[in-house]
Every structure is written in structure tokens, then in C-alpha cells.
Design a protein around this nucleic acid. Structure first.
Lengths: 347, 347
DNA sequence: ACCACCGTAGTAAGCGCTTTCTATCTAGAC
DNA sequence: GTCTAGATAGAAAGCGCTTACTACGGTGGT
């Protein structure tokens, strides 16, 4: 049998209520009594029963973090930032909170499933990271879930994701469109006119916004937007490689390729080198996100830096109520163009 | 007020017990009744109260995963593999299980704190990944926690971590020593004699084992083991960079550097290039782990591939009782030498 | 001295579920 | 037609905690 509150109470010669109060520190207890209780807890190696306490108090110390791919540093960095902020004070029991990281794999169903699971656990807060799937039905389903989570008392924060209309979720949105525009403008200003674009998966907000920014830049500078110069893939190295091969097949004369993100850009570089092309002498390559390895790639990647850690940390603070939500509950986080060695003037 | 089991029962005109049984599917319920209950659940948007159910059933559907750094793909990959395996059947309620990923940051205290928190949540299982801190006191504390966790019914699995004596935790250990030996033997066979070594943090099993393997190789081939050729750092790019600068200062004539892992190796490459040295013509570089970016680095990294995903998946299965633990509860996972472009014969 | 009050501690009523035990009903078995 | 077993469903007792609400001394004001 495991040790219960009552056992501790018996040993410390106090009532269970007193033990609970000592443990939660939310009610005055005489120093001597507290001492006695703490010693008993120690003697018995007592550990509070989380479920029981969550049930009685109608709150839990679980915080959910939804990510598309935990193995991708883009999400890992945000997750670690959120987690670093959810430990502090702001609640009961010294505020030790546990992060539940849920790997959706980008699947809408799993996203919904996890939200339900988090609702079931009565999570104190849930942070959704990364782009959302663009499907009216799914969006409505998610919005419904978020509303119910909020109703049940969970704080909901979106990090790197567009606002969810119809919910009162706080959104820290990345300015993907602006970033996309700036990176392409950089290329255009260098003199590029035939620019390939390897986009992320269809029907994703991040994909669409970055692509729209790219097109805005093309339009603004009177550069032709040839549909053949855009291909779609996943956010992985493989897609960057294959996409580049395809792009090269369609137009061997292109002088630059913009990738959906840095990982894709790395794949693009590999494909380019495989084709005997030099970067940036023959073809320039640009990424997005500025992940840790991007500065070390050879050549170092020109990209748009997203303050992933800062945004995640802020999301964590907002989720914990340690920081005020931005006015209107929406904040846009800008990406900064980082020019390195992978882009240059066209040959 | 949120919807409860009783509300569903009332609407479906059955007793709460029946609703519970439908939801858990662990007791015969007439098809018609089940239908009615399910419809009521749907109508009311009912979501089970996790804490209440965990309390009553004395089990929970939480699985803890301890990692040193969630932003590091080394851990991200294992975590995602574990998570991919814990969803399946093997328990109650369709077996939906939630992964609680805990970021210890390599800190012994946080490791203990998280273990306590998981014990408090009555986690169904906990998987500890990566190297352990080598400190007798801490090791004893962890062992104690693991024992109590196991006593409380949690299954404990170590993944990429040495066995914990005195506990009945299952261990899937990486053969870091063997890998370390093979990578250095590779360098020696190429003709290198002055080999720098950038080790990980002191007092870590992973660090020590890889370093021991390196020294075994040196000894086995009669190569002098100059203490000045070993420096310690963290498992990050920065340490690789700084360590290499230091190594170069101590012995400008070295012809190869072995890094604690691939990330460190990338930093080493950067430092070498910064010093005007070519890889591998002037200095060879070897890593460890074979992370996704390693094959795309320029030059592609020679390294030791650890089957992180496979090991994590197996750990997940064992944790879920879907796979038998290895005989003796300990399995050694070998790393495979992957020779690429970053190593060559010395100048 | 008397009363109001503050600081502590105990009592006990749940929190929302699971599960044992019991009750009912139907269908064969004889 | 009676009896028994099998299939379903309900009643109710908790699971281990939190938290009103209550109780009880001791103080300081008057």
C-alpha cells in the first residue's frame, strides 16, 4: 500500500487537513506544526497523489504543448522555451508544473485527439505551436475544442500560429508573410529574376503565408511569377532535395531558390551540389527560421531569423498568467532577414 | 458547470456505472444501450475527467519521458519514437496515452524533481533518455526514486543510459565505448597519430564511455595518449568551436579531432575553417550520433550512427508492455561507423 | 473581568469516477 | 413448467485529496 495523506497526518499527530495545508502552503500553519508535518512527510517518503488532488481542487498542474514534430528543432526550441517558463510561481504547491508535449505529426486528427486528452486532464494551459492546417471543418473543430478548454479554465495560447477566430485564445503570430517578402526582395535586389520556390505542405497557414510574401515581393518588383517555379513538399531535407531537382528540371536557368525553411534549404543545397552547381556563384539559396545549424552550414545560410525561443518563452509566461496578453490578444512577431553566404549576385 | 458522467447517464437513461463501462469498454453492455450512451456523450460533448478516473482506477494514462535537452534532435528523435509507441493498445480506454516530456537540462536536481512529479501523477511508465550524471549520491537518489516508481506500478525504462543497479529498470544502453573505439581506430588506420578529443561535460556516463573507447583505441594501437589533446565542454556547437581553438593552440600539428557528438563536430569544423584549415585535407573531423544534418554538412561528417529512433521505439514498446524486456533486462545497442567525407589521410 | 477577535487546527462534505456486489431478466436444460 | 446459468444493469462504497465551516484558546481593549 502506498502512503497517503492520512498516514502522514497520523504520524505527525495532526489532521489530514493540516497536512494538506502545509503541503500547499495556502493557509497559516504554526511553524512547529509545519516542521512536524514536513518531517513526517520525509520519514514516510510521502508523495502527493496528483490525480486525487487535481480532482478535489479541480485544477491540475499539467500544461500541454502541441507540436508538429518534436524531433524538429523548430518545435523543440519553442517547447523548451515554454517549459522553462511554466515552472515558476503563480499557482499552488510551489508551482511545479509538468509539460505534456504532444507530437501531432501535423495530422489534424491527432491534433484534435490531443486537445481532447488535454481537456480530459484538465490541463492548466495549452500552447499550440506552429502552423495550422487550413481546412474549414478542421479549423472549426479546433476552435470548438479551444473554446471548451477555455471554458473549463485552461488558458490557451497560440505560438507561431495565426489567431483562432471565435476563441479567446491569445496568439503570438509569426510574420511569415513579411519574412517571405523580405527574403525574396533580398534576392531581387541582388538581381535575381528566375527564383524557384520550394514551399511546405499545401493547406498550411505557414506555407501559404510565406508563399504569399514571396509573391508579393515578386509582384511589387515586377518580376514574373511563373507557376512552374513553385513546388510543394514537406518541411524536411528530402523535400528540399527533390524539390530542387524538379525545379532544375523545369528551368535549368534559375539563379536562386527560396526554401520553405532551413531544413529544406539544406536539402536544396545538397541537390545543387549534386548537380555540380556552386552556391551562391551558380545558384543562391535562402532558408527561413534560422535554426542553430543554419549559420554553420557551408555556405552559411541566408535566412529569416524567427525568435523561436523568445516567442516560446513569452507564450509560456502568458499561459502561466505571468505576463499580460498583448492588446487585442494578438501579437505579431517579426522575422529578421539574416544575410549570410548562401546568396549572392546571379552569375 | 462542466458535464459529468452523471449528466450523460441521465440523458441516456442509464446508471453512471453503465456509462463508465461503455467508455472503458471493459464490461459487456448491450449494443442498443451502448448506442444510446454514445449518443448522449456526443450530444453533451462530454469529456471524461482524467484525474477523477485516475483516482478511482488507481492508474493513469501519462507516460513520462525525461530528456536532457528537448531542443536537441538527439533527444527529440528518441522522444518522438517513444511517443509513437505509447498510443497503441495495451491498457484501458482505447489506450490513448499522453507523453509528458520533461526537460532536465542535464541538471540532477531537476531530474529528481521531475521523477517526483511523475510519481505524483502516478505515471503509467517513465522513460529516461541519454547519459546519466555520475555522482554516487545522485545515482543513489535516482535509483531510490526509480524503485519507488516501480513499486507504485510505473514501468521504468532507460534508453541510451547505463543500467541502474539496485532497480529493476529495463535498460537499452548505447555502446558508447565501442563506438568511441571504432571511430578512433578509423582515424588511426588512416594514419593519424595526433588526435584531439573534444569531450562532453565531465561526470557524465556518455562522456566517460566515449572517451574511454577513444583511449582504448589509442592504447591498442600504441598511440600516445597526450592529456593535452583532450578538452571538455558541453554537447553544443559552441563547445566544439572553442574546444577546437584551444586544441589548435595546444598543438598546431594535430591532424584530426574527434568530437563528443555531431553538434560539437559542426562547431569544430567551423573553428577549423576559421583557422584557414581544410577538412579533411589539413585536419580530419569525426562526430558521434549521426544526426539528420550530419550527412548534409560540408564535408559530410564521418560519425557513429546510433539508431536513436529504433531504440526509442523499442523503449516505448517495452514501457507499454508491448514487447518483452531483453534477457537480464539489459540490452546493448551498437553504433555503426559511418565513414563520409570529413575524415581522410593526414597531410 | 468581559468580550471581540485573531490565529490555528479539526470536521466533514464532497470532487467525478470505477468497480464490487447484487438484482433482474431471458433462455435453455431437464 | 421449474430451475439454473448467462447476460445486463444498478446501487453504493470508496479512491485520496481540498476546503468550507466550525471550534477553541489566547490577547488586547475597555
Amino acid at each position: 500500500m502506498t502512503v497517503t495523506l492520512a498516514d502522514v497526518a497520523a504520524r505527525a499527530q495532526v489532521s489530514p487537513a493540516t497536512v494538506s495545508r502545509v503541503l500547499n502552503g495556502n493557509y497559516p500553519v504554526a511553524a512547529a506544526t509545519r516542521e512536524r508535518v514536513l518531517r513526517a512527510v520525509d520519514d514516510l517518503d510521502y508523495v502527493l497523489n496528483g490525480p486525487a488532488s487535481a480532482l478535489a481542487a479541480a485544477t491540475s498542474d499539467l500544461v500541454g504543448i502541441l507540436v508538429n514534430d518534436i524531433a524538429d528543432p523548430f518545435f523543440g526550441i519553442m517547447a523548451s522555451a515554454v517549459q522553462s517558463e511554466i515552472g515558476g510561481p503563480g499557482g499552488r504547491a510551489g508551482g511545479e508544473r509538468l509539460a505534456v508535449v504532444c507530437n501531432t505529426g501535423g495530422s489534424p486528427e491527432r491534433e484534435l485527439t490531443y486537445l481532447t486528452l488535454l481537456q480530459r486532464q484538465r490541463a492548466a494551459a495549452v500552447v499550440l505551436t506552429g502552423g495550422a492546417v487550413e481546412d474549414a471543418e478542421h479549423a472549426a473543430a479546433v476552435a470548438g475544442k479551444l473554446r471548451r478548454l477555455a471554458d473549463a479554465g485552461s488558458r490557451v495560447v497560440l505560438c507561431g500560429r495565426p489567431p483562432a477566430p471565435g476563441t479567446d485564445a491569445v496568439a503570438l503570430t509569426f510574420d511569415n508573410r513579411g519574412g517571405g517578402r523580405r527574403i525574396t526582395e533580398h534576392l531581387i535586389s541582388l538581381g535575381h529574376r528566375r527564383i524557384g520556390y520550394i514551399a511546405g505542405p499545401q493547406e498550411r497557414t505557414t506555407t501559404r503565408h510565406r508563399l504569399e510574401g514571396h509573391r508579393e515581393a515578386l509582384a511589387a518588383h515586377g518580376v514574373e511569377d511563373d507557376p512552374a517555379l513553385t513546388v510543394h513538399g514537406r518541411y524536411d531535407r528530402r523535400s528540399g532535395h527533390d524539390g530542387t531537382v524538379e525545379l532544375l528540371r523545369r528551368d535549368p536557368s534559375l539563379t536562386a531558390v527560396v526554401a520553405a525553411n532551413d531544413t529544406v534549404a539544406i536539402g536544396a543545397c545538397a541537390a545543387l551540389r549534386g548537380a555540380g552547381l556552386r552556391i551562391p556563384d551558380d545558384v543562391s539559396v535562402a532558408g527561413f527560421d534560422d535554426l542553430p545549424f543554419s549559420g554553420d552550414a557551408v555556405p552559411a545560410l541566408t535566412t529569416v531569423r524567427l525568435p523561436l525561443y523568445e516567442a516560446g518563452a513569452r507564450a509560456g509566461r502568458v499561459a502561466m498568467g505571468k505576463e499580460e496578453p498583448p492588446p487585442g490578444d494578438v501579437a505579431t512577431v517579426r522575422g529578421e532577414l539574416v544575410v549570410r553566404k548562401s546568396t549572392g549576385v546571379p552569375r
